[in-house]
Nucleic acid binder design. Structure first.
Lengths: 337, 337
DNA sequence: TCTGATAATGTGAACGCTAACATAATGTCA
DNA sequence: TGACATTATGTTAGCGTTCACATTATCAGA
């Protein structure tokens, strides 16, 4: 019973198959020039022994761990979950492993520790999901020896970052309101430290300017309470505002709640459009019109770029992701003031 | 420029510090019997060279990867995100790495592939987050050589699983309604293939029976539309139902929406309590009373048990997790029928 | 001052694999 | 049928650690 159950190695397989260990290695890595006959002999030997290649030995000799790190903000919001799944799947598809480290994006120490941790396992590349500007610099300062891809950061090089389509999404959200006939449209923005905020503001502004309308932006963050607060104080009558583009669904929810309490009907008096399409958005009161970004695809693309960097293959330059307009009940023709 | 930039190894450090490589190894693993003087010499040498231990070499010789796998359902619902963060953090705290594989819990092939993938990297243990019964058996069949911890599955051994507190949470939710004075309380359950459903039903039933009340359960799933459908058809007047315990917040949201459309005021005519406390619950119409499980703590505990198994240390037997009652506006005294 | 314990450090091998090179089998063409 | 390319396989070394086992320094007690 105390028999040592050493896992089978390449030599065990070789012996059983009647070949050299190198031939086994060749089969594993499907190299050229192997007789079909030998290949199958080796394969059935592997099968029989339940052989699993030893990743450590492989990593040691090739100096490649086949692991990519994901540095992710532990601020839980709606997108990342699906994104992580997509990233993991894409990595696996390319024969890579994904290993994540959660960090507090506001704490440089935490970032450094996360990176240190990932370094120890020997990552070949790093994908960073952080929505805050400071962290990008922190990461860039700390990581210089392996490729890094930033998700949703305003990096110059498209090669080094993957973007959600904030600008285009915001533009289209605004255009939706304009196309309904709204003239006075305000934007409640996300927090300025988050990357997603600025392009949403620009997309809104550009759409307004193109339609010769006056943009007006209120500073917010991503939270329901903030939306509620802004909604409580927003001046609507004198300025004849008939529509609001909220930088995310939570803000929109807070706004709707406050405005209805103040007696403004939605969408009869005020139209509201959000951004993100959180699962609950369809069941808000009223169901929220919003922009649905493709988080999963974003994750996939980011990982694809990462693997492209690592293997030095040409990155398939994908088109910009564009959020989809989901029209529900919170937007309608403008009220007659 | 073409100079090879080999990473420093233990010998480089040894040379610089003027000791043998083994002494360096001892410092890294802080073994006994090292002069304080030598230790610091070695440490500054490591610092100077930017030495990072090679995980692969280490894993090869010790036959321990320091990696645990997480097999996670790619059905994205509210809990797992925070849970994953917590698991990763707990793993890191113990010097371990966490690496996840997303799988479709309904597809045994997908599960097998996920496990195969994790096996390749050499995981020392596996944490399984799947809410469906079938997958547990599939996993148990496939993994026999390393410890497995199931999250939220009805496993006999508490050592092998970590539970959310579904039973106790459901009991307390029901007791909350009872304590308000409700007599006719129905439960809209989750899907039977999910583990969380059954204990929530039992918790509800037991609370009802203790209060000498008649339990009545409607079969549902976790979705808003299903809650809405059930809400549209639920008979309330003849049976004098005044309160509903929904198995999760999404069902509750759907229910509330349908009931209000039918003219039933909440909470004046019907009280509703949910389960999960999704971030939006506080801003539903009306804000939802619900049970808040501690997902993060669940993840932490699960990982703690995992590491306990691996290192053969005694698992700190933690108390059962109990969801917290969050009272908002959707529950009140029963209506006078 | 010698002895024997204990503290502190050193030496060689092995982990399982792939890279690089060497060799053997097979096929092709004059 | 020999010469030479091509295909197919084998041999040896080394990746960076830790382990198991020396070996050397240090210190107390007789």
């Amino acid at each position: 019973m105390t028999e040592k159950v050493r896992k089978p190695n390449i030599y065990d397989v070789a012996k059983l198959a009647g070949v050299s260990h190198q031939t086994v290695s060749r089969v594993i890595n499907n190299a050229d020039y192997i007789k079909e006959d030998t290949r199958s002999k080796v394969q059935s030997a592997m099968q029989e022994l339940g052989y699993v290649p030893n990743a450590a030995a492989r990593a040691l000799v090739t100096a490649k761990s086949k692991i990519v790190g994901i540095l992710v903000s532990d601020i839980v919001y709606h997108g990342p979950a699906g994104m992580m799944h997509a990233m993991e799947k894409e990595a696996r598809r390319g024969g890579y492993f994904a290993i994540s480290a959660s960090v507090d994006p506001l704490d440089n120490d935490s970032i450094a520790q996360g990176i240190e941790h990932l370094r120890r396992v020997g990552i070949e590349g790093l994908v960073v999901i952080t929505p805050q500007s400071d962290s990008v610099q922190a990461v860039e300062r700390l990581v210089k020896d392996i490729p890094v891809v930033f998700i949703d950061s305003p990096h110059n090089s498209t090669e080094l970052s993957a973007e959600l389509g904030n600008y285009e999404g915001a533009k289209r959200a605004t255009e939706h309101l304009i196309s309904l006939g709204h003239k006075k449209i305000v934007h409640v923005a996300g927090p300025s430290e988050w990357f997603d905020s600025a392009p949403r503001v620009s997309g809104y502004s550009d759409a307004m300017k193109s339609a010769k309308l006056e943009p007006k932006v209120f500073a917010g963050d991503w939270s329901v309470p903030t939306g509620y607060e802004i909604g409580k104080n927003l001046e609507l009558d004198q300025s004849k505002v008939t529509a609001i583009f909220a930088a995310n669904d939570h803000l929109a929810l807070g706004l709707m709640r406050a405005l209805r309490q103040r007696g403004y009907d939605i969408p009869q008096r005020v139209s509201i459009i959000g951004f993100d399409d959180v699962p609950e958005a369809a069941f808000y009161e009223p169901p929220l019109t919003t922009m649905r970004p493709d988080f999963a695809e974003l994750g996939r693309v980011a990982m694809e770029k990462m693997l492209g960097h690592i293997t030095r293959e040409a990155t398939l330059s994908s088109d910009e992701l564009i959020p989809e307009l989901i029209v529900r009940e919170s937007t309608a023709l403008p009220a007659n003031l």
